[in-house]
Simulated assay, not measured.
Amino acid sequence: MLAVAARTVVRDASGLPPDLASVDALARAHLDALRSGRCEVLRGASDDLVELLRFAGLVDVLRVETVVSPIRRPAGEGTL
């Protein structure tokens, strides 16, 4: 049996509006990728789009990567 490395495709979602049409398009593209033996990762989605994907139950299915911003504190606070 030969092991074939999965091809991972990174999809940039930074320009997608947070609506159901985007959710549908992303889900269909992900399904097409799976059928052709690829793996997709979604990057750059807005917070609103991520929340909509979470509501639809697709955040984990679509492998959405989110960026966590560091906590900003006023100068002098939080130092030990």
Rank of each mutant, 00 (worst) to 15 (best):
D12F: 06
M1H: 03
C39K: 03
R73H: 04
R11D: 12
S22K: 06
V10P: 00
A75H: 04
T8P: 00
G37I: 05
R63T: 14
E40T: 07
A13S: 02
G15H: 09
R73N: 00
A33K: 10
G78K: 08
V61K: 04
V67S: 10
L42N: 09
G15P: 00
V67H: 04
V68L: 14
L52M: 11
D24I: 01
A29L: 08
V59Y: 08
D32A: 07
V23S: 10
A13L: 02
F55E: 02
C39G: 05
L53E: 10
A27E: 02
V59R: 08
V68N: 05
L26T: 08
R28H: 06
L62N: 11
R28K: 10
R43E: 15
D24N: 08
A25H: 00
V64S: 09
V41E: 14
A21K: 12
A21H: 13
S69Q: 11
V23T: 12
L80V: 14
A45H: 01
L49M: 04
S14G: 12
V61T: 05
R72L: 01
R38Y: 01
A33F: 11
P74D: 06
A21D: 09
V4T: 15
L80A: 07
V9W: 00
H30G: 01
A5K: 01
S46F: 15
E40R: 06
V64R: 00
L49Y: 11
